[in-house]
Write a protein that binds this DNA or RNA. Structure first.
Length: 308
DNA sequence: CTCGATCCCTGGACGC
DNA sequence: TGCGTCCAGGGATCGA
């Protein structure tokens, strides 16, 4: 599933593969994941690709002004914003090559290739944005974990009451981290996913900041994690899944202490952690069941047991 | 502000 | 072999 390292990998690949190419035409398949399909069809043809970069989990494909400026109102630089969701892929391929199943967007380039967007589950998102609308959209997101200072990282988390796992996943706090790298960094920093942001010490957050950066950089170097079907712009899988220490390892031994890795739901997501290395905060018991009433009832039960 | 629930979507795993 | 069921997960949205 594409998170920061996977998106960075795709961005770097596309940057070298399609920068400078001009978009000749657009063909669309299913469009329910596109903000404004008509805008894509209208605005893209005639524009050149200036740059491809990562913005959080988005690919930001910067486009030139249209080559032919007959429409003055649209005569500005814009960008194609692409979120790969869970199963999205952006593949530049020769027109002659048969398109994969679930190819929903094809941008014909001026060198005989197509930039194809393939996404079985269509959890991705695509939009053409320009000017103030683009700027406003980008401003919704938090700090880039590889660019943020320690001070910024700490203040963004420490002033929040939510659980650290939820904060790491919240794109408005930190942009680009998803379930895999949240769990891996929390394990390495020895922090339980249910810890509250405001209760973490400077020392704990310093450790988390450094481990998160270290893990993201290593994962980028290995072209990301391919769990099910992630492929980079060259159609190749990543290698970082071999280095996962907790993600997807429920019941297996912690490589640090030998305890069995557990899985709980935190922030609505599967969260893998080592119960020995990552101590739960007070109050985080056998919860996460069904209702608060049920939790309260079991709490009462324990109390009366102890009272005896 | 923070939470959980729900929806979106399809393929893969699993049970029978 | 072929069903049916469950699950994965990012993000938007809604109600508590």
């Amino acid at each position: 599933m594409p998170e920061l390292p996977e998106v960075e990998t795709v961005a770097r690949g596309l940057q070298s593969l399609i920068t400078g190419r001009r978009i000749v035409s657009v063909s669309l398949g299913k469009t329910d994941f596109i903000d404004d399909p008509a805008a894509i069809e209208k605005e893209l043809p005639g524009r050149s690709i200036l740059e491809v970069k990562r913005y959080g989990k988005f690919l930001l494909i910067r486009l030139s002004r249209p080559a032919t400026g007959e429409d003055a109102s649209a005569d500005e630089e814009g960008a194609l914003l692409v979120h790969l969701g869970m199963t999205g892929m952006l593949l530049p391929q020769p027109v002659a090559e048969p398109a994969k199943k679930h190819t929903h967007v094809a941008l014909l380039l001026d060198d005989g290739r197509e930039l194809r967007y393939v996404d079985a589950r269509r959890f991705g998102r695509m939009a053409y944005l320009a000017g103030d609308v683009l700027q406003k959209e980008l401003q919704r997101f938090g700090a880039d974990p590889l660019a943020a200072s320690l001070q910024e990282f700490v203040s963004r988390i420490q002033k929040r009451r939510a659980r650290i796992k939820a904060l790491l996943l919240d794109q408005g706090v930190i942009r680009g981290v998803g379930n895999i790298y949240a769990d891996e960094s929390l394990w390495k920093a020895k922090l339980h996913p249910a810890q509250l942001g405001e209760r973490l010490t400077n020392e704990q957050l310093g450790k988390l900041y450094r481990t998160l950066q270290e893990i993201l950089r290593k994962a980028i170097a290995l072209h990301g994690s391919s769990i099910s079907d992630f492929l980079d712009a060259d159609g190749l899988p990543g290698e970082y899944q071999r280095h996962h220490r907790v993600y997807g390892r429920e019941g297996k031994r912690c490589v640090r202490c030998g305890s069995k890795i557990r899985r709980v739901i935190v922030a609505g997501r599967s969260s893998y952690y080592c119960p020995n290395c990552q101590k739960a905060p007070r109050g985080f018991g056998m919860m996460g069941k069904k209702t608060k009433a049920r939790a309260a009832a079991s709490k009462k039960n324990e109390k009366s047991k102890k009272g005896k």
